[in-house]
Design a protein around this nucleic acid. Sequence first.
RNA 1: GCACCCGUAGCUCAACUGGAUAGAGUACCUGACUACGAAUCAGGCGGUUACAAGUUCGAAUCUUGUCGGGUGUACCA
Length: 544
Amino acid sequence: MEKYLQDEIHKALLTFDLDKDQIPEIKIETPRDPDHGDAATNVAMLLAKPLRKNPRKIAEELVEALQTDSKKISEISIAGPGFINFRFSDEYLADALKELIDQKENFGKSDANAGIKSLVEFVSANPTGPLTVGHGRNAVLGDTVARLLEWTGAEVDREYYFNNAGRQMRVLGQSVQARYLQELGKKAELPEGGYEGEYIKQIAQQLVDEAGDSLIDEADESVFKEKAEAAIFKEIQTTLERMNIKMDSFFNERTLYDDGSIDKIVQDLRDKKLAYDEDGAVWFKTTEFGKDKDTVLIKSTGEPTYRLPDIAYHANKLDRGYDLCIDVFGADHIDTYPDVINGVEVLGYDKSKVDVLVYQFVTLVKDGKPFKMSTRKANFVTLDDLMDEVGEDVTRFFFLMRSPNTHLEFDVLKAKEAGEKNPVFYLQYAHARIQSILRKVEEIADFSTEPDYSILTHDAEITLIKKLIGFPDAISQAAFHREPHKVINYLNELASDFTSFYHDCRIIGEDEEMMQARTALATAVAQVLKNGLTILGITAPDQM
RNA sequence: GCACCCGUAGCUCAACUGGAUAGAGUACCUGACUACGAAUCAGGCGGUUACAAGUUCGAAUCUUGUCGGGUGUACCA
């Protein structure tokens, strides 16, 4: 419908005395107040300046020139400073509802991102411990954005980037080694800044079970590190699976060293005079991009900082032919990505293909007080703990219900009470309730013929139908802005419109014709609820 | 100090990215079950969108400044 109106308005504008480039982008919006209409455009106001005319006058002329099909648009009106409002015809609504029902589990899909090969990189936690609540927001956000891209027609790969080298991993190995020796009754102490979590002890215990005391004289921590890495990765994968997340690939940072791309990038940057040596380190001339200081690419120890492999990694992704690379990361990385993006650009890549999705931190609140999370100190709440408490659906829902841009306050105690005030319940309940009705109505009504949707004229029915046909638009908006909470907002409105309908309009007990039409409408609502919940990665139970 | 994010109803958050009278949930108040699932519904109360200028037909949204909160500002990732 949006496309149709845009085309018609465009046609009408061609009769105006306008240069081609003076025709503005025609935006079709849904007025907040349904009394205004079902769709609206502000083009007349935008044309006021180039035409040097009163916008209302322009609107009048435009409406005059419009030749919309009365089977689709029943009424066109002008309001306020020059809005043009359209009202959908009953016939159009009935047709749209029929189409929705025919499309079933595909309703809501679009081709807005068709032909786009995309990679969403997320989670990307190094294997130093179980996933925490903090990682949860990243994981769920990344996965849901990926789902949104899929629903808008894009080809999507999900990738987990990790680094199993470096200091943190060595400390991890040493921590396991210390616990291993302690398990065997030897005196050993955790290294400086070691990992204190209970899971380290479990890994050590496992090692004792498998290898006995054969590793007691091991001088090097790498055996322990490898063991720890394998165990932790296994746990991370289990957690992700539980959250309904399936990665397509795991990318080891080491690959970038092995294939020589790190060296090549340093050389390229040197050739472009953007990298130089000083104090034994290699520096990146970030002052060229407006930073106060240059930054270190390779430390004097010979170890690169994260910037270098990150640049190489992005180059690698773009080399793999992706049109769109989405990175999901927390606000603490906000300062680092411009260096990476700039680095990628000076190497000759198109930086507009890289899209960074930054989310604000999750603050854990317990007993009304916020507390800091640290994997190393082990005072974190793991994602598994959280899911044990409140369930997988609530966990996913919780991380998605707010804009990524705002801080997410996670009250642990409140989340534990979530059984009753469960935020996802309202949606699931509406779905289950419809399924319950459908089970009953199936036994008494005949559905062999196509229902007559035109008899659905009650206010609650009309409101509901209009809401239903807005679903695809809600999905593409959410996908375009990478904001899954828009899906949740939509579904809440839909569920609310449905329960209003449910209270006003009975299904069982009406005459056969009405029972059929309303059953079809309820089926459509259930379908859209289910499609929406599927995008969010949340189940739509038939009964609760 | 500098950079980024944020400041909207008592509380938690929206607002289709510049549109029409700023909306939901929650809390509080009032009503509605002998009917398809009341874990629900209908109504009420609640606002100078932190503040001040500016841009324009029109600003919560854009610009500048001020105040307040968060994050970062490493030869850590």
